[in-house]
């Protein structure tokens, strides 16, 4: 390796090691410490000439059903949101890919624009729409469609809706990228051979778009599992998601070791889908 090459690689490599990899080792370390009423609020790894580690934080997570529910809750919310996002995003991406080329750039930008727009504000917008005296209830009441305001917020419905809304662009973009590459000749050939549109879609388009589906599913599912803002603002007291529990453990209870153990648990959960993600990215290059 020559000097210039070394320079190009070494600087970002050192940065990523220090600020991306090492932090995880520290999380692992603190997850094995005791909570303490010191600054910082955990016991040191080495004390009195010996290694002092404890598994009590993990045992605590296993023994309290709250954490199990939050863990499974996050998977459930993220999985449902991913499926809904796929069902809504696929026809949207397909439609854009079939739009005449001169409109496509505009439509694509309309999909990307919300992704650049403040995430927090987009979630906040739903509060104004969904709350008891919000815009949707107000409209339904004045149209006479309902007699009393509906409970639209602080429940499972609003959490799923928020997740689908926030992550829809992440599903549409990889699907579009895949569908746009498909040659329409394939569908024409299927039609010439007597396949009706539905069958041509099922046997030609759908199988060929699967890499896009896989990318979209992972891009939505992985961040959705760790979501904090959506369950916090749109969820209710029964909305248990691991990201929210972690936040409360850290900011409300100041229990750093338990928050660290939760982080490790979340990373274990995400290791598999993130591994798939890596393989997918490598396959594209």
């Amino acid at each position: 390796m020559n000097v210039r090459r070394f320079g190009v690689v070494a600087l970002p490599y050192a940065w990523l090691l220090l600020f991306f990899l090492v932090p995880f080792l520290i999380v692992l370390k603190i997850s094995l410490a005791h909570q303490a009423f010191t600054i910082p609020p955990y016991t040191p790894l080495f004390a009195d000439g010996g290694l002092r580690i404890t598994g009590e934080n993990y045992l605590f997570l296993l023994s309290d059903p709250l954490y199990w529910k939050a863990y499974l809750g996050a998977i459930r919310y993220a999985a449902i949101a991913t499926i809904v996002t796929l069902l809504a995003g696929y026809p949207l991406a397909y439609g854009i890919a079939r739009t005449p080329a001169r409109w496509r750039a505009l439509l694509l930008m309309l999909v990307i624009l919300p992704f650049w727009t403040s995430f927090l504000i987009r979630v906040y917008a739903w509060i104004g729409l969904l709350k008891e005296n919000g815009i949707v209830n107000h409209a339904l009441l004045s149209l006479g469609l309902i007699d009393a305001p509906l409970q639209l917020i602080n429940n499972d419905f609003s959490v799923i809706l928020g997740l689908v809304y926030a992550y829809l662009p992440f599903m549409v973009l990889p699907l579009y990228a895949q569908l746009e590459k498909l040659d329409p000749v394939l569908n024409e050939a299927a039609a010439d051979l007597g396949a009706r549109p539905i069958r041509a879609f099922r046997q030609v388009t759908l199988p060929l778009s699967l890499p896009g589906v896989a990318a979209g599913v992972l891009l939505v599912f992985i961040p959705a599992v760790g979501e904090f803002v959506i369950p916090d603002l749109l969820g209710g007291p029964n909305t248990l998601m691991i990201g929210k529990i972690l936040w409360d453990e850290f900011f409300t209870n100041h229990d750093w070791p338990t928050a660290a153990a939760l982080t490790v648990a979340m990373l274990l959960l995400l290791a598999l889908p993130m591994g798939f993600m890596r393989r997918l990215l490598r396959g594209d290059a």
Partner: peptide, 10 residues
């Protein structure tokens, strides 16, 4: 794709 809460805490 890393959840921000993990990046932030670590």
């Amino acid at each position: 794709v890393m959840p921000e809460i993990i990046t932030g805490l670590s």
